[in-house]
């Protein structure tokens, strides 16, 4: 058990995994990881668990850098960032809840950008609700 999983009860961890499964069901989405602000994986839908742990750490760095750059520019806090490559997209989005968490979704070129954004946003809202409870 990672220290971060203490943030979210056993039941809601199951719930989180189900929400992530729905997201991964979206066309083109390959994997999804929910992680704490300090880089621990809380729940994931991914074939490679080591890769999910690494994605959690790198995702938390990017979220923190996102917050830093927003602050530098005099903007309010980080909400999301997108890394686009020639064959896919990684979307990192903040989950609003009692604890700081973010979600990373990895999609291949089969994903439609608008759908990916919408589905991830919806997943974050659902996760925010359980984390807030």
């Amino acid at each position: 058990m990672t220290p971060a999983s203490r943030n979210i009860g056993r039941l809601s961890r199951e719930f989180a995994r189900r929400e992530l499964a729905t997201l991964v069901g979206t066309t083109g989405v390959r994997s999804a990881v929910l992680f704490s602000a300090d880089g621990f994986e809380i729940a994931s839908q991914a074939t490679d668990s080591a890769a999910a742990a690494r994605l959690a750490a790198i995702g938390s760095s990017l979220s923190a850098l996102g917050s830093a750059i927003a602050a530098e520019a005099g903007l309010r806090d980080f909400e999301r960032t997108m890394i686009e490559s020639s064959d896919g997209t990684v979307l990192i989005m903040r989950v609003h809840g009692t604890r700081a968490m973010s979600l990373a979704a990895v999609a291949d070129h089969g994903a439609v950008l608008g759908t990916l954004l919408w589905a991830t946003q919806r997943c974050c809202e659902a996760l925010g609700r359980i984390a807030g409870e």
Binding site: P3, A4, S36, A37, D38, F40, A64, E72
Partner: peptide, 23 residues
């Protein structure tokens, strides 16, 4: 300095409130 500190959830490793995750 630019900081990227967030809440530390791993109090087993170190009992400090914030920890740097970026730079």
């Amino acid at each position: 300095p630019v900081r990227t500190e967030v809440e530390n959830t791993d109090r087993m490793s170190h009992d400090k409130e914030f920890t740097t995750v970026g730079l």
